[in-house]
Amino acid sequence: MTGEVAVLGAGMHPWGKWGRGFVAYGTVAARAALADAGVDWRDVGSVVGADTVRGGYPGYVAGATFAKALGWQGARVASVYAACASGAQAIATARAQLLAGLADVVLVVGADAAPKGFFRPAGGDRPDDPDWLRFRVLGATNPAYFALYARRRMAVHGDTLEDFAQVKVKNAALGALNPHARYRKAVSADEVAASTVVADPLRLLDICATSDGAAALVLSTMDFARRHGVADPVRIRAVSTVTPTYPNTVLDLPDIATDSAAAVPPGERTFRASIAHAAYEEAGIGPDDLSLAEVYDLSTALELQWYEDLGLCGEGEGAKLLRDGTTSLGGRIPVNTSGGLASFGEAVPAQAIAQVCELTWQLRGEAGGRQVAGARVGLTANQGLFGHGSSVIAVR
């Protein structure tokens, strides 16, 4: 397809708490991606960095920061910020440059050195930002926000604490097989239930941590890939970075308190559902075509919501999909084969890129014990603060 670009290389710095700066992590991931692609740094025509506002001035100019760290060689640079969707925005920017003929090879890098505890809003007071309002007016930190979603699912769809725990059990088992994951230990449902309550009904093991880490991709035009000797590369077919169509003031709040079918105006979709729909539409595929998905499991309950928003099942059927083993390795549509944020934690600018790294390894058949048999089509999905959508579809 004319809108496709090739994924020649994928690389990561393991997630954890390493006590170094984001530039060090990003440089390791970038060099790993270049080595994986077999591309010399001097052949990179552009560097797109996903910004980290916690990294000081260098974090706001991540593209140039990574280009300098790798050694100035004249590449054009771009830097993008979209909170948790920053990586997808960086991929979209790189793809646009490739399709416009501005470069043959683009390096995409995201990295973070996250503080301990809750993420604080950056940039001062933002009374026009619905997420700032949530933090400051409602006092709803992210765990409290996730707990509202969980309570809604319990009230409207009958989900249980055991259902939420099984999401963690599934993802932890896969993360134990991933050398890049921070938490590489299987956990039981009993361990989830015994962990500290953070925001009822969610326990500590229901909620993802904050982490250091990095991910990088080497993208190219299809012509360059063929000249480079890669006849059948993994290809990015769609990138969705849509914003909500409703409501105009506070993101998703109707969905928290009421049945979403009643909250959504006729002909509209929830924000998360619209993110995936835009990707499906661009790629010319649907949910039934997927081999696997990587979704943004900030909490266990939120992963179940993504099943429905991606169209993997009907509304209210997410827990049943999990119970049936459909989203487990070996099921019809494995979800979060990387181990998800349950196993990695948040390294915000890197995570949407890391999701595409996992798709790349899966579609190449290089995922080891996490491998999805015969994987041909993968989708990523997350969302960032201030209405940033994020979904990438990769095929082979």
Score class of each variant (00 low, 15 high):
G11H: 05
G16F: 07
K17C: 01
F22W: 14
G26N: 09
A29P: 05
A29I: 12
R31Q: 15
A32Q: 14
A32I: 13
A33Y: 01
D36N: 12
A37Q: 06
V39A: 01
V44K: 01
S46A: 15
V48Y: 02
D51F: 08
T52M: 04
G56S: 15
G59T: 12
G59H: 08
L70P: 00
G71C: 14
G74M: 07
G74K: 14
A75C: 12
V77D: 04
Y81D: 05
A85K: 04
A90S: 10
A92F: 01
A94E: 07
A94T: 07
A100V: 13
G101D: 11
V105F: 10
V109M: 10
A111S: 13
K116G: 04
A122L: 08
A122C: 08
G123S: 10
W132C: 06
W132Q: 01
F135S: 01
P143G: 00
P143E: 00
P143T: 00
A144F: 06
F146L: 12
L148D: 00
A150K: 01
R151L: 05
A155K: 02
V156K: 05
G158F: 12
E162I: 15
D163Y: 07
A165H: 03
V167Q: 06
A173P: 04
Y183R: 01
K185T: 08
A193D: 05
T196Y: 00
P201Q: 02
A209P: 02
A209C: 08
S211L: 08
G213W: 12
A216Y: 04
A225C: 02
R226D: 06
G229E: 10
P233A: 12
V239P: 03
S240H: 06
S240T: 06
L253C: 15
L253H: 12
D255L: 11
S260Y: 02
A261W: 11
A263V: 12
P265W: 07
A278M: 13
A278E: 13
A278K: 15
Y280R: 05
Y280V: 04
E281N: 14
E281W: 15
E282Y: 03
G284V: 08
D288C: 02
D289L: 04
E294V: 07
Y296E: 00
Y296W: 03
A301R: 10
A301F: 10
L302I: 09
G316N: 07
L329F: 13
G330W: 09
P334V: 02
P334Y: 02
N336D: 06
N336K: 08
S338N: 13
F344T: 00
P349F: 14
P349L: 14
Q351T: 15
A354E: 07
Q355L: 03
Q355V: 11
C357R: 01
E358Y: 13
Q362D: 08
G365Y: 15
G368L: 07
V372T: 11
V372D: 03
A375F: 09
